[in-house]
Design a protein around this nucleic acid. Structure first.
Lengths: 195, 195
DNA sequence: GTCTATAGAAGGATAGAC
DNA sequence: GTCTATCCTTCTATAGAC
């Protein structure tokens, strides 16, 4: 499955062949078909595994004992460190490429990845709003906005194969400005926006 | 080329065959190869055409005589009306799917689409900043932020084949909140943020 | 369980008649 | 310019020996 994943990420689902997978793995096609009844089932099993990895990553949020600014910065950095890695971008590229032919692929990844992440971040923001550290607002929308601000153009540039993974400094800069913008729009009203 | 575009959008580049294109267009494969020397050249010609369409759309900005709030709303609505259409999303899906194998594909689309759009919007924002209607800031970043806020989660949901094109009302709602957030963060300092 | 061998279909591309 | 026919490769999937 690891070999198959790499091949499909490199060549795409249609262009990646079972023969090539068998060759790369050092076995024969007959044996490969003993493990997976069809190319489609191998692909489904493979993507399910990747989806679980994504779900695990989206489920964690460790920001205890930080002020709101530091917590948002930590959340943003962790988010970018996860999605701006070549392997993850390649998986997303494969999901986007094939979700037209495998409709449940996009939905499954979305539910386990972005949607879960937004829900968890939204819940955390709801707490912050209740305690007056953030302005009252739609939590899901606020969480989505924050993530989009963090990504800014970086994710698209990788997805479109224009630039490789950005440096830690570039990511940190993006998060810093994202936090500033976010707090100006969603921060408590008694704290005026900075210049 | 129209037929080929539709087939590739539906099946993907690798899975869409020259035979199928010839059949759909009502001709023969031999004739098709008289017009395009190879499948790859047909694909390149086709994507170049789509790219030009995108470039044309990204080049226009008509907001004369509006206040900043109305202008941003108009810009955001026009932007969403363009990118949240199934055909455009399908093209983007194809670009993302194939830019790993055709590196210049992603770059060409990016330069003519998003980059051009950001540059034009950034220039307009520079004027607004100079006249005190927006806070002074990095114009390219501000333009990118505004577009990301307008898209919010809508574009991804279409790209991942989770939802069809949103209604006009849904787009308008997204733009309205995007303008509010944007103005809270980038609006002039003398106008306090609304509740 | 793993291999070789192969069936059966489809793909890209070309040759050559008209 | 357009067609039919075909070459050669490659694909998914299976059969059957060991």
């Amino acid at each position: 499955m690891e070999v198959a994943r790499d091949l499909f990420m490199q060549e795409g689902y249609a262009a990646g062949s079972m023969s090539e997978i068998a060759t790369r793995v050092g076995g024969s096609k007959g044996t490969l078909y003993n493990y997976f009844a069809s190319k489609e089932l191998l692909f489904a099993a493979l993507m399910k595994q990747e989806c679980d990895i994504e779900a695990l990553e989206a489920s964690t949020l460790a920001v205890s004992g930080m002020n709101i600014h530091g917590a948002l910065t930590a959340i943003g950095l962790r988010f970018l460190d996860f999605i701006l890695v070549q392997r993850v971008v390649d998986i997303h590229r494969l999901v986007i490429a094939e979700c037209g032919r495998f409709p449940e692929l996009g939905r499954t990844f979305f539910e386990n990845g972005p949607r879960r992440g937004v829900a968890i971040l939204g819940d955390w923001m709801a707490e912050q709003m209740a305690e007056g550290r953030l302005r009252s607002a739609d939590t899901e929308r606020a969480a989505t906005h924050f993530m989009e601000l963090c990504k800014s153009g970086l994710h698209q540039k990788m997805l479109w194969n224009i630039e490789p993974a950005p440096s830690a400094a570039a990511k940190a800069a993006n998060v810093e400005i994202a936090v500033t913008i976010f707090m100006a729009a969603y921060g408590p009203l008694d704290a005026p926006a900075p210049s």
